[in-house]
Design a protein around this nucleic acid. Structure first.
Length: 598
RNA sequence: GGUUUGGUAGCUCAACUGGAUAGAGCAACGCCCUUCUAAGGCGUAGGUUCUGGGUUCGAGUCCCAGCCGAAUCACCA
């Protein structure tokens, strides 16, 4: 079904041709929603056509308006305010749209086909030395959501994760566990594996600082102390042994990483994110190293006297970048090259999307150039989905200062708040304990997820741990609440034996509020498409919020089941049903589940 | 210092490719449950969109300069 905006755009083009004998492109036609304070549904901005008409804005708008009224069936009236041509669309058009949406469960989504491009989305990418925190939550939610949005707009999507499971930071927690752990395990301590490991990472840092202080007390400078630190030397030695695949170190590494993975799995599952394919840095860093050496052989890169390998990117307006250390070990960039190669070997990827914080903008700029230099023609097309940091009121979160907001703790708190609110309101009578728990979980997570996703991903955002995330107003629970109300209406309609699948008669009179709701529903598709185009789940969050806000006003002002006119009653039920459906599917793209009661 | 990015109500955020009188929520103060879920609805108050220029029919949005903040420019990841 063709959208009304397209029809009007094309009609405007022929209006210009017929009235002024001039050609304009469809894209040049500016169509927008008529603002609430004016009457009409759709507005054409005529300023751009004054050159063709050689007349004033009012007169031009008047002439185009008359043309449209005569030629487009759905245009039933128009008015002109300055250079704005406001068109009134016939209610029968909106009613037709409502019926169309009712009959198409996937309205707004573009189905995947054989020819759909395959997009790989990398997100999460944790280090295995500490548990996930609020920053990771934003990353995970954005990554998962953008994957769903891309799927909904006709792409094949492979969600992937690169686990940073090796390196000096991993050795630090291993060493601390070995020295101070006394054999403690997740089982013996009752602690999640990722948290247990995180404790030892912190422990290492504490012991290291203690040692530095002692050394500095003997008169050494900070640098000298760092040089002399026995603890750090042991960690480096451990990394060396790991790279040499020393049996004991390797076994320890595997054991401790598995603890972390078990912990991560719990967090991921609760957060509702998942992956189709997981890569491990321990498998990819050597591949990257090979590629760099190839680049060295082909003359793209060069070696310095100390035998470190570099890329000169000055021609690309950037600096020089190290690719292999003087001892031959690989750096972050090396691994990303290796990971990229493996991925493109494994999948016929058309587009690679990296969901990584904006602190790494430079890194991805460089990666893109390096991949191109190494002969990967997709290098220049990689998309860095760069998102802003989550900050505390006093600034950045710092793990060493213990100011990080832990992901597991935060989810616990949100669900607990949901439980308290729900119990106070007492609306879940008749639900079993299990069913009620399910609602608390959905509501608590909705509050958290919506809070994170409603903000433009590009922007930094502030989280204040002292003020708990709201459950009223522009929030996830508010949207869920509206959905639950709709479910309640539909349940009761069914109890009354109303056939809610019936088609609504097109002749009934509609109130402006009702028209506005249908109009809003018809914008779902363009909203999803826009969200995919600019990589922004926030677009969908804000759209759904606007929709439920309008619906709540409608719900308050109009009777649905008590309406006496049967045709109108059925219409309002259908309208509610469609709002519910769009709300559920829209929020589904954000990973937010809708409870039928709350 | 170079590069990138941001500055909108007391607070957290909107404002589609430049469009009409810059919108929501929270917090504050009123009002509305014998009614389909009050986690709701209605209202009041709250703004020099950091500052100063420019571009044009029109600028929160684009350009220039300045002020303030953030990120990055590592043989860290």
């Amino acid at each position: 079904m063709q959208g009304i905006e397209t029809i009007i755009s094309e009609a405007v083009v022929s209006a210009i041709a017929s009235l002024y004998e001039a050609e304009v492109s469809v894209e040049a036609v500016q169509i927008q929603k008529t603002r609430k304070e004016f009457s009409g549904d759709i507005t054409v901005v005529v300023f751009p056509f004054l050159r063709q008409s050689r007349k004033g804005p009012e007169q031009t708008a008047e002439e185009i308006g008359q043309f449209l009224e005569g030629k487009v069936v759905s245009v039933q009236a128009f008015n002109v305010v300055k250079g704005f041509l406001n068109l009134e669309i016939a209610p029968s058009h909106w009613m037709g749209m409502l019926n169309f949406m009712s009959e198409n469960d996937a309205y707004g989504f573009t189905p995947e086909t054989e020819d759909s491009p395959l997009v790989m989305v990398e997100y999460s990418s944790p280090n295995t030395n500490k548990p996930l925190h609020l920053g990771h939550i934003r990353n995970n939610l954005l990554g998962w959501s953008i994957s769903e949005i891309l799927k909904a707009t006709g792409n094949k999507v492979v969600k992937t994760n690169i686990v940073n499971d090796r390196g000096i930071h991993i050795c630090k927690s291993m060493l601390a566990w070995q020295k101070f752990g006394e054999g403690i395990t997740p089982e013996s301590s009752g602690k999640k594996g990722d948290h247990l490991i995180g404790d030892f990472y912190v422990k290492f840092d504490q012991e290291y600082k203690k040692e530095l202080a002692e050394l500095q007390a003997t008169g050494l400078s900070k640098e000298e102390a760092e040089e002399k630190s026995a603890l750090m030397a042991e960690a480096r030695e451990m990394l060396r042994k790991w790279e040499a695949k020393d049996e004991d170190v390797y076994a320890l590494w595997q054991k401790m990483n598995n603890w972390v993975y078990e912990g991560f799995d719990v967090t991921y599952k609760r957060l509702g994110v998942d992956f189709d394919k997981i890569y491990y840095e321990s498998d990819t860093y050597l591949v990257g190293k090979d590629k760099v050496l190839e680049g060295l052989a082909s003359g793209e890169f060069y070696k310095r006297e100390d035998s470190s390998v570099w890329a000169n990117l000055e021609k690309d307006g950037l600096d020089e970048k190290i690719l292999l250390r003087s001892d031959g070990t690989s750096v972050y960039m090396t691994q990303d090259i290796g990971t990229a190669k493996l991925r493109f070997d494994d999948f016929p990827i058309d587009k690679m999307v990296y969901v990584v914080g904006n602190e790494q903008n430079y890194h991805f700029q460089v990666l893109s150039i390096l991949l191109t230099k190494l002969g990967f023609d997709w290098g220049k097309d990689l998309k860095h989905f760069s998102y802003g940091m989550v900050e505390l009121p006093e600034g950045k979160m710092k793990s060493r200062e213990g100011t990080v907001v832990d992901a597991d703790d935060l989810m616990d708190e949100m669900i607990e708040s949901a439980r308290q609110t729900s119990e106070e309101l007492g609306k879940l009578e008749g639900y079993s304990q299990e069913e009620a728990e399910e609602v608390y979980r959905k509501v608590g997570l909705a509050a958290l997820k919506y809070f994170m996703l409603k903000v433009d991903p590009k922007k930094n955002m502030v989280f204040n741990p002292k003020e708990s995330i709201d459950f009223n107003g522009n929030t996830g629970p508010f949207i869920q609440y509206t959905y639950a109300r709709i479910c309640s209406v539909l349940r009761k309609a069914k109890e009354q034996g109303i056939d809610i699948e019936a088609t609504v008669a097109s002749g009934i009179a509609l109130d402006q509020n009702e028209i506005d709701l249908i109009k809003k529903l018809t914008q779902f598709k363009e909203t999803v498409d826009e969200a995919a185009k600019i990589y922004s789940p926030a677009i969908i969050a804000n759209y759904v919020y606007d929709l439920v806000k309008d619906y709540n006003r409608f719900y308050h002002d109009f009777s649905i089941l008590k309406e006496e006119n049967e045709a109108v009653k059925l219409f309002r039920i259908k309208l509610s049903q469609n709002v519910g459906s769009i709300v559920k599917r829209g929020m589904g793209l954000l990973g937010i589940e809708m409870p039928e009661r709350m």
